[in-house]
Amino acid sequence: MNMLTRLNRGDGLFPVTLRGVDDIFRTVLGQLAPDFTPEMMWDSGLAPKLEVEVKEDAVTARLPIPGCKPEDIDIEVVGTSLTIRARRESEVSDDDKAHYLRQERSFSEYEESVKLPVAIKGGETKAEYKDGILTVTLPRETAVPPTAHVVKVN
């Protein structure tokens, strides 16, 4: 009964907010696995992991996306924001003589944006896709030392 009391907040049998759904997972599954969090469901290890390294002269972003073709990868740099989009679709045989009992197709898309902590030269960004790993190199903007201005008051 304690579980029902915690889940029912006076707005029906189950809360309809996303926070309420998190509460349900925390309560029900938390009893089975005390270390469980709803975020663990989204971090299943299946999504590619973006790695961003900031160096003195450039920012390097690496992303494993095997099975993609270079023409299926889009990279966009706006200000200090980097967005990577990729899509992968399984090949389907065009063989008319083949008789398939079963043929499965897969399709997946990936998109991630990251705000970079430093100013970059977006127009000089270079990307390389080799052995299933995308490497994006963004040269850093040279820091302009601040200049002092003396302003006279009239």
Rank of each mutant, 00 (worst) to 15 (best):
H149I: 13
R9E: 13
D23T: 12
F107W: 13
C68W: 09
T147C: 11
E53S: 15
E109Y: 10
P117S: 08
V78H: 06
L46T: 04
G132L: 06
K152E: 14
F25G: 11
W42K: 14
K49G: 08
R9S: 10
S93C: 00
R9C: 08
P70L: 00
E39L: 12
D131R: 08
D23W: 03
Y100N: 06
T37N: 02
S44T: 14
P15M: 10
T27N: 07
L50C: 02
P139W: 08
P38E: 04
F25I: 09
R105S: 14
G123R: 02
E71D: 07
E53P: 06
R19S: 08
K49Y: 12
G79D: 09
K49L: 11
S108N: 05
T37S: 07
V52N: 04
E111R: 14
V144T: 07
M40H: 06
L13M: 02
G132M: 01
P38I: 04
R6V: 08
D22E: 06
V144K: 15
V78M: 08
K126V: 09
D57A: 14
E112H: 02
P48E: 07
P48G: 04
I65E: 03
E109L: 10
D11S: 06
N154E: 13
V52H: 04
P145K: 09
E39Y: 09
L134G: 07
V78W: 03
V144W: 08
K115H: 14
M41H: 10
L134Q: 03
E71L: 01
G132E: 00
G45R: 05
A98V: 11
E89K: 09
I24E: 12
Q103C: 13
M1L: 11
M41G: 15
G30E: 03
K55M: 13
L134F: 03
V114R: 11
D43N: 12
M40F: 11
V118R: 01
V52G: 01
R105C: 14
T17W: 03
P48Y: 03
V114P: 03
T83G: 07
Y110N: 00
A127L: 06
R85C: 02
D95R: 01
R105H: 10
N154I: 15
R102H: 10
L32Y: 06
W42Q: 12
A119H: 12
V118L: 11
A58C: 13
Y129H: 06
P139D: 05
V16K: 14
V151K: 14
G20Q: 00
F14A: 05
I133G: 15
T5P: 07
V151N: 04
P145F: 05
A61F: 05
I73Q: 03
A61V: 00
G12K: 02
T5I: 07
Q103H: 10
A119M: 15
V52A: 01
K97S: 04
T5H: 12
A47S: 09
A61C: 06
M3S: 05
Y129C: 02
A47R: 13
G10M: 01
I75E: 09
T125G: 03
K55P: 06
I65W: 08
E56N: 11
E141K: 15
F14H: 02
P70H: 00
V21G: 13
N8H: 10
A148D: 05
H149Y: 14
T37Y: 09
N2W: 10
E39M: 11
A33C: 13
A61L: 00
R87W: 12
R85E: 12
L50E: 00
G30W: 11
